[in-house]
Design a protein around this nucleic acid. Structure first.
Lengths: 145, 145
DNA sequence: ATTGAGATTTAGAATTATTCCAAGTATTGA
DNA sequence: TCAATACTTGGAATAATTCTAAATCTCAAT
């Protein structure tokens, strides 16, 4: 667990390069901040933590770095999308598919399935609701490709 | 499918009452708007559609109505939460548990499971990523209860 | 090492989504 | 009918995110 540092920056450099993105000290620093406390911080929290080791970093850069990390597959965004909340009057069990191209959100019916059974949580957690969402290309957009 | 109207308002009235909320023409109208086009509109879109039949309705009321509908279980919010995006450097397959009480987000490891196999989508959809998120009480908060 | 092209960072303005507020209005139960 | 309370409204306020233009950095080719 110690010396995760170099591993981190090497992996980061490769990953970024693979996407045509450049490795920068800010990106590495932001990544390190994320690795340090695994508590799913908001961009604002990342900003505040990042400033400790890099006082001049700006909020815009934090967003930029987070985007870069997401693009190169080192970080996940925990939310369906960063835009407005959407509303759905279908209360049957189902999940959602959001098209990355056209932005449409589709209902996907749950297969007969034993999915429900599989959604087990560790002891102590008391789940009330859950949501499954997928992203990718919808039939229309997949065709135009 | 026709005459869904009265059914709609009856159900609405009961549901609202059960939560100590009052039935109002605005709430019914907003619900009707949601039932009309099942395309997961944003609050802004609901507002624009609602204005057609109720020109004086305000954006604040639309938000209020949507909240009421969500509270009484007739509508779902399609997003983990309406606050800031969160970032997670854990790229292993896992899902998230968000505590409604303290707001913390936990990683929940995927059980060995055949969950993956169950995530089938209808023909034509090309999923790239998916996310499973649950909400409820975390172990700490569940205890203090 | 130098250099030029293009990517990145920065601060702050702008935009977008959502919530708050105070005043007027509607609904409920007595 | 009346009082209490919830709801609606328009607009202001806040919060999250994106945009902008100028300065700086990185890369790859000299």
């Amino acid at each position: 667990m110690r010396d995760q540092g170099n591993q981190c920056s090497e992996q980061l450099g490769e990953r970024l390069a693979a996407r045509g993105l450049r490795p920068t000290v800010q990106r590495e620093h932001v990544y390190r901040v994320l690795l340090q406390d695994r508590d799913h911080p908001t961009a604002e929290q990342v900003f505040m933590r990042a400033k400790k080791g890099m006082p001049d970093i700006s909020m815009a850069t934090v967003y930029n770095c987070l985007d870069a990390l997401v693009k190169c597959g080192l970080v996940k965004e925990v939310n369906v999308d960063r835009a407005a909340m959407r509303y759905c009057p279908n209360m049957h069990e189902h999940w959602h598919f959001r098209c990355d191209n056209c932005g449409a959100v589709y209902d996907i019916d749950l297969p007969p399935s034993r999915l429900r059974l599989e959604l087990k949580v560790p002891k102590g957690f008391q789940p009330k609701t859950y949501e499954i969402s997928m992203r990718g290309a919808c039939p229309n957009c997949a065709q135009d490709n």
